[in-house]
Design a binder for these strands. Structure first.
Lengths: 370, 370
DNA sequence: CGCATCGATGGGAGCGCTCCCATTTCAGCG
DNA sequence: CGCTGAAATGGGAGCGCTCCCATCGATGCG
C-alpha cells in the first residue's frame, strides 16, 4: 500500500487552501488577508493570521509567480570583466545596500555575474522573457547594449553609474566631479602648485567626470584657463600634468613614472582611484620621493587599500551602500509604476517622460598622504 | 481599437503549447525534447528545436517550478556580522567560483545576506518551505543553528568552512592547519627563533586550526613539547607568545602591543589574518620595530591589504574561488541524490552515511615582510 | 417596508509546465 | 498472419496561487 503521498521529499508546507480551511474562510479571502487587501473584516483577518501562524504557512513563490505573472525577484547584474577592475569594497557595499533595502520587501535578490558575451545574451534573453521583475545594473560600460535592450523589452532597470552625461535610463550616481574637485582644491589649499592627475579609462563616464573636476578646481584657482564646456568632455584628456591610467595598480605606477619624467617638479597627484594611487605611491618610492613631504597624494573610492597604504591615503569617499539602497528604491518605484501604467510601445510617448535620476554627494576623507 | 493584445507589458514569450503546435507535436513531446529526454525520435527532436529557435521560446521558470516541485535555484547565505570581519576578497572570490560553476547549469543564484536574528528565522522558514533546492552556507559560526535546521528539513546544504573537526554536514574547507604550519616553518627557516602568533576568535574552527598549525611547526622544530592531541584543540590558546585577536585590525594592533610588552625579543609574528597583520604592523611601527629586519610578519588569506602593505605581506593563500566551485559541485551532487533517493526521516538510516567533504590545500605566498 | 448599494466573501478559471497514463505504431516472433 | 511488447506520442490532471465574478448580507434611502 503506497503511502498516501511519498511525502517528506521536496514537498513544502501547508497550502493556502489548508490555511483557509483552518481559518474557516474561503481561499480567496485567505489570499486577500495574506496580501494585505483592505477589503477584509477585522475578525476574518485575525482568524486567517492565526491559522497562518499555527500552520507555519509560507506562500509558494512559484505558484504565486505563475498566477500573478510577476516573479517577485530582481536581478543584480554584475559584469565581471577580466581585469576585475571593479571589486573590493565597491561590490560588497552595493550588495549590502541592495540587500538591506530589499530585506524590507519580500523580493528575492538574484545575482548574475556576466562573464562573457554568451552570458550577456543569456541574461538578455532571460530578462526579455520577464523572468525577473526588475534589474539593477552596476558598473556598466559606455558601450554596453544591455541597458537599452532591457528598455526595449519594457523591463524596469536602474543603473549604478551613468554611461554618459545625458544618460537616458534611470540611474543613481555619485558626484564624481565635485568629489574630484574637492580633492584637488584640498591639494591646492595645502599650498601645492604643480598638481597632476592620473585619470581612469576615458570610456568610463565617471572617470571623465573626475578629470573634469580636476580641471574645474584648477580653473577656479586661476591655474588654468577656462575650458570649452561644463562638466563633461571638452577637456584635454592629456596634457603636461594629465596622464591616462586604467584603474589598475600597474597603470598607476606607469602613469606616475611618466608624470615624474615629464615634470620632476610635480608636488601633488590626484589619482582617479585608490588602486592607481597605490601604484603611483610605489613609483614615487622608487623615485625617492616622500609622501606627503615631496609629493602629496590623493585617491578616489576610499577602498581598503587607502586605509592600509603608508602613509594612509587621503581619498574621496562615495556613499556606495546608500547608492545601492537608492537604486533599489528607485527600481521598486519603477516596477510599481510599470504595474499600473499601460507600458505601451517604447516610441509611444515620444520618450518625453523624465526618467528618475539621483546623484549622491561625495566627500573628502583626509589622511596623511596629503 | 485596442491592439489584439496589450502586449509589450509584463507578458512573456511563447508557451510550450505554442512551440508544440508550431512543431506539429504534442505538448508532452515538446516538453520531452526541451528537457532532453531520450524517448524522442530524432526527427521530432529537431522539429521541436527548430520551433524553439524560431519562436525564441524560453521556458517559464515559475510554471516549471510549480509543476515539478523544484525551484531550480540555490541560495548562497552570507551572515553579515556587525564587524563585517568577513569581507574583502573572500566573499567576491567565493561568489566568482559559485557563479562560474553555476553558470553551466541553468540554476539560479539567490543571494541572501543575513543581518540579524529575524533574518535568520526568515531564511530558515523560507528554506523549510523548500523555496530553493539547495543552500550554500558560508562563514558559519560554531554555534549557528541554521545548518542543523536545514538538515532536519531535508534541505541539501554545503558549508564553506567547518564548524568543528567532526563537522556532520557536507563541507568544503581549506587546509588551515597546514597553511599555518607552512607559514611558521617559513619563519623558522629564516632563522627566527621567537615566533609569536596572533590568533583569531577561538569559536571559529578555522582560527583554531591556524593556531594548531603554529604549534605543530614549533613542535616539529623542537621548540615546543608535544601537545595533547592532533589537529584540533588541545593547545593552550594562550601563552607567552600566543595572544588572541579577533580578526580585526584593531585587535591585531592590540595583540601586537601585548606581545611586545610580554617579550620584547619577539622576532617574528604569525597573524591568523592579513587584517590583523595590518594592525600588528602598525603597532610595530609605533614601537619603532622594522619589518622584516627586527620582526618578520606573516599573515593569512592573501587579501588585498597583504599586497598593499609596506612592506608587502607574506601570507597564506587559500584557493577561495575553487572552494566556491567545489561547494557548488558538491551541492549539485547532493541535490541529485536527494532527488533519486527517498529522503526518509533523518533518524532513518541512523546517520551512518558518510557526508561528502573536501579540504583544499593552502599555499604560502612569500613577500618582503619576512 | 421594499429596493438599490456596497462591503465582504466564496470559489471557478486558469497561469505554463511536468508527470504519467492511455493510445498509437511498428517491428519481431511463433 | 495474428499477437506481444517496446518505442513514440498525445493530452488530462493537477501544482498553489491570484484574479475576478457571482453571491450574500447588511445598510441606507425613498
Amino acid at each position: 500500500m503506497p503511502a498516501a503521498r511519498a511525502d517528506g521529499a521536496g514537498k513544502s508546507g501547508p497550502t493556502l487552501e489548508q490555511v483557509a480551511a483552518r481559518a474557516g474562510v474561503g481561499r480567496g479571502t485567505a489570499s486577500r488577508v495574506i496580501n494585505g487587501s483592505p477589503r477584509v473584516s477585522e475578525r476574518t483577518r485575525s482568524a486567517v493570521q492565526a491559522a497562518v501562524a499555527e500552520l507555519g504557512y509560507v506562500p509558494n513563490r512559484a505558484a504565486r509567480a505563475l498566477a500573478a505573472g510577476s516573479m517577485d525577484a530582481v536581478a543584480l547584474v554584475v559584469p565581471e570583466q577580466e581585469n576585475r577592475l571593479f571589486a573590493e569594497p565597491y561590490f560588497s557595499e552595493i550588495l549590502r545596500g541592495v540587500s538591506a533595502e530589499l530585506g524590507d520587501t519580500d523580493m528575492q535578490l538574484l545575482l548574475t555575474l556576466i562573464r562573457d558575451q554568451r552570458g550577456r545574451e543569456r541574461f538578455a534573453q532571460y530578462a526579455a522573457a520577464h523572468r525577473v521583475d526588475g534589474v539593477l545594473l552596476v558598473s556598466v560600460h559606455g558601450d554596453d547594449p544591455l541597458p537599452d535592450l532591457l528598455r526595449e523589452v519594457g523591463m524596469p532597470a536602474v543603473l549604478g553609474g551613468r554611461r554618459s552625461h545625458a544618460e537616458q535610463l534611470p540611474y543613481v550616481d555619485s558626484d564624481n566631479l565635485l568629489g574630484a574637485q574637492l580633492a584637488v582644491e584640498h591639494l591646492l589649499g595645502r599650498g601645492r602648485r604643480k598638481v597632476a592627475t592620473v585619470t581612469g579609462p576615458p570610456d568610463i563616464y565617471g572617470a571623465r567626470c573626475r578629470l573634469a573636476g580636476y580641471h574645474a578646481a584648477l580653473r577656479a584657482a586661476g591655474l588654468e584657463s577656462a575650458p570649452p564646456d561644463a562638466d563633461d568632455g571638452g577637456f584635454p584628456a592629456d596634457g603636461p600634468l594629465v596622464v591616462q591610467g586604467d584603474f589598475t595598480e600597474e597603470g598607476g605606477h606607469r602613469a606616475m613614472r611618466e608624470l615624474l619624467a615629464r615634470d620632476p617638479e610635480v608636488d601633488a597627484v590626484f589619482c582617479a582611484s585608490d588602486v592607481m594611487a597605490a601604484g603611483a605611491r610605489l613609483a614615487l618610492r622608487e623615485a625617492g620621493r616622500k609622501v606627503p613631504e615631496d609629493v602629496a597624494l590623493v585617491g578616489f573610492d576610499d577602498s581598503a587599500v587607502a586605509r592600509h597604504m603608508d602613509p594612509p591615503l587621503t581619498t574621496v569617499r562615495q556613499p556606495i551602500e546608500e547608492m545601492g539602497r537608492a537604486m533599489v528604491r528607485m527600481l521598486l518605484d519603477l516596477m510599481a509604476r510599470a504595474r499600473e501604467d499601460p507600458p505601451r510601445t517604447p516610441s509611444g510617448t515620444a520618450g518625453a517622460e523624465q526618467q528618475p535620476r539621483l546623484v549622491l554627494p561625495t566627500e573628502l576623507v583626509r589622511r596623511s598622504s596629503s
